[in-house]
Nucleic acid binder design. Structure first.
Lengths: 193, 193
DNA sequence: TGAGGTGTATACAGACCTGTCTACATTGTG
DNA sequence: CACAATGTAGACAGGTCTGTATACACCTCA
């Protein structure tokens, strides 16, 4: 697994970390294998021993991203609010934090799909699964809040989330999250039974 | 300008047409110059006589796209509805049509920015200008409809539009436009003076 | 001590990509 | 007709990219 004595992370971990940062910040097609091995301080053969190809590395990058992103997202929301209705709104406070990150550059999954432009690439299904997971979580909150027409409301909130991410990334304005939150509040109020 | 006798479009027009289709459908980085000249039936030197570089062609592609997209968007909306409040909702009917297009693959400007990942690229400013134009148009409709807090409402509707585009592109579901329309109607109703 | 697993360093093959060069064909205009 | 502008065809230089091959170093465990 990891090196026994040295505290240095394993080659695989360093590759994934470097690939994640570079792929997200500069785009998949703009980052070559040589950049990744230079950044992670690993030999090229080590990379190809751990990952069959660049496409496999891309898929691993998305899986790694998902494994970290969603639990962290959910944890932050549930730390901010206890009631399901409040948690729906807290989503946008978490987005607000995220948008303020210096390196924020939109959704890694959406960006990757745009760059790949190929629904047969393994990364496509990981991205779709990711969006499904978020939608399921929103729906569970909407249902727990006992709001009417849960499916529609959940999907509308998902639209607000995606829209806020795109607008914030393009205009570089975190306050987009606040406007989206106000819009979500109005939709939720209109869905009271 | 154009060929006098033959009805064949000029080389420049054919290049732009081929580049637009290929760039949008397959992504900028996935389409090489050779593909474009093959598709447009033009010599490579003709392309480089009309466009200084691939980057210049990308910028021209975005300018061309903008020149067609927004007037057509506006025209369709104003054909569908006369009152400003109705036109705000008609936006989403136009999106619904667009999403059903076989080749729909999201917003060309957003996709290009994601692929370039470089705010110094000339294409970046064209894309930002495009989004500003849409926001200005929405704001003018909101103001004409005499709704309160025009700026906020306009930006919220813009968020719904961007979100609908992303969700529809990812899930390949045109009905996303209808859910976004219902959400917009609720926001508009809440903004009645 | 010696074997095997893991990582390193680097060269290289082969594909592809942008952009340039040269030589030739076509067409409208004075 | 002759000239200039425009387009064609294709070779090619120079760079980048992915993925492979080779030779060597280190560490662990028997």
């Amino acid at each position: 697994m990891s090196r026994t004595q040295s505290s240095r992370p394993s080659a695989r971990d360093r590759i994934l970390k470097a690939a994640s940062e570079l792929f997200y910040r500069e785009g998949i097609k703009n980052v070559g294998i040589d950049r990744i091995i230079a950044e992670s301080g690993v030999a090229k053969m080590s990379l190809y021993n751990h990952f069959k190809s660049k496409d496999a590395l891309i898929a691993a990058y998305l899986e790694e991203y998902e494994k970290n992103w969603f639990p962290s997202f959910q944890e932050k929301i549930e730390h901010l609010a206890a009631e399901p209705g409040d948690r729906l709104l807290a989503i946008f406070d978490v987005l607000y934090e995220w948008f303020q990150d210096q390196d924020f550059r939109g959704c890694a999954f959406v960006n990757t799909i745009v760059e790949l432009a190929d629904i047969t690439h393994p990364g496509y299904h990981i991205a779709v699964k990711h969006k499904q997971l978020i939608l399921d979580y929103i729906r569970s909150l909407v249902e727990a809040a006992e709001l009417i027409d849960a499916e529609t409301l959940a999907r509308q909130i998902a639209i607000l989330i995606e829209g806020a991410i795109v607008v914030a990334a393009l205009a570089q304005g975190a306050e987009t999250a606040i406007r989206a939150k106000e819009a979500a509040a109005i939709l939720i109020a209109a869905s009271q039974p």
